[in-house]
Amino acid sequence: MSTPLLELRNLGGGYPPISVFRNISLSIGNRESVGFFGPNGHGKTTLLKTVAGLLDPWEGDILFAGTRLNAEGRMRARTSRNLNYDLFRRRRIRAETVVRAGLIYVMQGNLLFPEMTVEEVLDIAPRAAEGRQGVAEMRLLVDDLFPRLCERRDSKIRYLSGGERQMVSIAVGLLALPRMLILDEPTLGLSPKLRIELSQAVRRIRESNVPLVIVDQNVEFLTSLVDRLFLFDHGSITREIDAGSMPSHDEIMTMMFGETL
């Protein structure tokens, strides 16, 4: 395999002082899509937020296309509970750097900007891709993927349904011209009909050769889409499954929780 697109080396992080995940090492190839599956509240979103630059990693490295996105070394431990560390400790990673490198994270259940119209949001979305070609083509793809958004282009985000908001979120991510797109539970809390619609859109994004990292609670959806699946439990990757041997929902449940019920 050539240099991986995204590589995590012994990554650890959390919300100080509570460590949420430890020793995460993985590498994702150039044309590969991977999935994450695991119980809620075990650190998947925290890990992805760290990779996206919203939270500081405690230790380890995040490499994207061969360049390190975070500052070197470990995060200094807090010795005082009241000192304002935000003042003394520089951010170890910045979302801006991550986004400009082309690693785009689409947040879970994102409310976006309630008082802005769809058009306004889509207008500023390509700012992250400044100086790169292809925004116009991507816009065409987005319009094609989500025809609903064209209909609602002048509505405020506040008045959109949950599914439409998720569409805007994904569209915003796409317009930043991702070299890799991270989707955090794209179908969370949606009606079955919208879930199908969004799943199809995600499938088409996958087919247009954008490497995806997807977190979802629907095993069938995940396994049909990704090349590799990581099982995530208690802040670490407990198992890695290749495309050839994708298990069913029940098998995964057994792997993660043992014989139950």
Binding site: S80, R81, N82, L83, N84, L87
Partner: peptide, 14 residues
């Protein structure tokens, strides 16, 4: 407030 938002008593406790 900027450097040590906990205040004097927190400093004493620390």
């Amino acid at each position: 407030v900027v450097v040590y938002p906990g205040g004097l008593f927190a400093a004493l406790q620390e």
